[in-house]
Design a protein around this nucleic acid. Structure first.
Lengths: 146, 146
DNA sequence: GTAACTGCAAAATATTTGCATCCTT
DNA sequence: AAGGATGCAAATATTTTGCAGTTAC
């Protein structure tokens, strides 16, 4: 079973990269692994740490940028100037994001989660404003920490 | 009338600083002026620019930090890693923020506005999560740009 | 006068760029 | 083989810290 699962992940990763016209390289696979292995979002620093000194800091910057451009991952705004990245759902691959889910930051474990089941509410704006995208970030205690 | 108005602003600034046990210094007054003079939010860079080379970059960092600590201004998270600051409403001075308004980023003029009249919606979270603060950032076109 | 604030210098971090080399296709 | 991706070095940019001099109260 672990064998099978890892094959599935490999396939998924290869598919993601191919679909986006990216060559399949070690660093990209490794970084995607990190994202797939866990629920939360990752900051640049997390990735460098967890990748285990394997590749260059610059490669991480470039890889993340590439993934954002292709719509494989998206950024989550936070108030403390630490950008976090999370995997996009399949539907939003290809550059256009349709992630209308909210983000949750636990200030106990400091993890960030995409709550895919929670849809962003409609916001009624004052006259003259038109909305294109609504970002909701909730902070509090997550289910693992309470 | 301009005289009167400027006196009022001066009073307001002095009051704000006094109320928060901060000494009234040139840089603080100048920075508060910038915030009071306009509707939108300011990024660190804006402040350095608009302040007209008057004071040190370090002073800006420290002043902004002080203001955030005291609850005079608050940060607005953005997806592009550029922290923006905006004045808090009177009620939230003193460290505790009760700003339940939303933020709007216009991607034409690139200004950030606090829409004080738009209250953040209730978010229904999955079981196990508890919310403490909800941040909503909408982007689109503002009323001045459309 | 004293504590708080500022400005300068410098350290520590973070991010970007150029280029030679290596890898994927 | 060719183009893209990586790694290293170095250039930039950003933020923090220490300390001496200045200012507000």
């Amino acid at each position: 079973m672990p064998k099978q699962a890892s094959v599935n992940i490999e396939n998924k990763i290869a598919g993601l990269l191919k679909r986006n016209n990216l060559s399949i390289t070690d660093s990209r696979k490794k970084i995607l692994h990190l994202f797939l292995e866990q629920t939360g979002a990752l900051a640049h620093g997390d990735i460098e740490k967890r990748a285990g000194e394997k590749f260059d800091r610059v490669t991480v910057y470039r890889t993340l940028q590439t993934f954002v451009d292709k719509g494989i991952i998206h950024t989550i705004p936070t108030a403390d100037n630490s950008i976090r990245y999370a995997l996009c759902k399949d539907e939003c691959a290809g550059g256009h994001h349709h992630d209308h889910h909210i983000h949750f930051v636990c200030h106990k474990c400091n993890n960030t989660y995409c709550l895919d089941d929670v849809v962003t509410p409609e916001i009624k704006l004052p006259k003259g404003y038109s909305a294109e995208h609504v970002e909701v970030v909730v902070d509090g205690i997550c289910k693992n920490c309470r």
